Amino acid sequence: MRFWYTLSTGKKRLLLLLGIVALGSLLYSGVAQQRLINPLLAPLDQRAQHVLKQSLMLSSASFATARLIDRGIAFVSEAQFSVGVASIKPGQVLKPLQDMAVRYSDIMVLAMTSVGLQLFLVEFGKLAALPLFGSGVIVAALGWLLGPASWRPACTYLLRMFMVLLILVRIGIPLGAVAVGALSEWVLEPQRQATEMALSKETAELQSVDQPLATPDSGALAWLKQLASNANELFAAVKTFSDNMVEKLIQLIVIYSLKTLIFPLLSLYVLWHLGRWFVLRPLPVISTADAVKPAI
Rank of each mutant, 00 (worst) to 15 (best):
V139E: 00
G143Y: 00
G143I: 09
W144Y: 15
L145T: 08
P148A: 09
P148H: 04
P148N: 03
A149S: 14
W151C: 09
A154T: 11
A154G: 07
T156H: 09
Y157M: 12
L159G: 15
L166V: 09
L168I: 10
V169T: 15
R170Q: 14
R170S: 13
I171A: 04
L175A: 08
A177N: 06
V178P: 10
V178M: 13
A179Y: 07
V180Q: 05
G181I: 07
A182F: 13
S184T: 12
E185L: 13
L188F: 10
E189P: 11
P190N: 09
Q191E: 01
Q191D: 06
R192G: 01
A194W: 02
E196Y: 05
E196S: 01
M197Q: 14
M197E: 05
E205N: 03
E205K: 06
E205A: 08
Q207F: 06
V209F: 04
Q211C: 02
Q211M: 08
P212C: 03
A214V: 10
P216I: 07
S218I: 11
G219T: 09
L221Y: 08
L221E: 07
N230E: 05
L234D: 04
F235I: 04
F235W: 07
S242V: 03
E247G: 13
I250Q: 08
Q251F: 01
L252P: 02
I255T: 00
I255H: 02
Y256V: 12
S257C: 07
S257A: 13
L258E: 00
L261I: 15
P264H: 02
L268V: 14
L268D: 13
V270L: 14
L271F: 10
L271D: 06
